[in-house]
Amino acid sequence: MTPLLQVQNISKFYGHRIGCQDVNFDLYPGEVMGIVGESGSGKSTLLNCLAGFLTPETGEVRFEMRDGEMRDTVTMSEPERRMLSRTDWAFVHQHARDGLRMNVSAGGNVGERLMAVGARHYGNIRAEAVDWLGRVEISEERVDDRPTQFSGGMQQRLQIARNLVTGPRLVFMDEPTGGLDVSVQARLLDLLRGLVREMGLSAIIVTHDLAVVRLLADRLMVMKDGHVVETGLTDQVLDDPQHAYTQLLVSSVLQV
């Protein structure tokens, strides 16, 4: 099996400060990788470099295109990269309003990516939108409501539907359950797990919530001060952490 994504020597600096430095990893089809670390550890900087929102100073982010060729998305042309991000890639923001059009109906939000890749049949677009709303447990009768009328959990599920409707192969998630009630979180996590398995998605999830990665991620990368301090199988890193920082992180989790 060949990797879907090869990340090599990614470094990003903010002036003299390190955003993230010398990050390397391969992501295989169907793999879900978690990136954990405290605020300022560089996990969001790294995610934004991978997703093309920031340009790293060094390194390559090589992605397997549909024709099987590995292409460096850092140096590819902007139209190509933007095309990727509306077709093969998806990005789920922490705050749904960053990832949704708040003044466009739920159906329009889901349909946008379809229309962006050329769908021109209203009935089909709408049917697909309704289908996806169902898959993220939003009832059909809400299809014409705007996200402003939705609860936080529903907005987040709508954002996921909007992203997955074009059948992406790689999903970036930035704190997808942040700011949600625990009961709403659980529902969202279950939904994400199901979608990842059904669609064979690969995903990179940035979070500071170790319970989230334990449930969602196959592998874990622990970051501190812009550097990767530990990687491995999720349950192994959490149950038998090797690095001093990871041990501190794991032992700092409050028990319920």
Partner: peptide, 18 residues
């Protein structure tokens, strides 16, 4: 410049939906 005009159809979609 990148010919990304999906959004224009979103407006028409909203019209029909409403």
């Amino acid at each position: 410049s990148l010919e990304e005009y999906g959004l224009m159809h979103v407006k028409l979609y909203e019209d029909i939906a409403k």
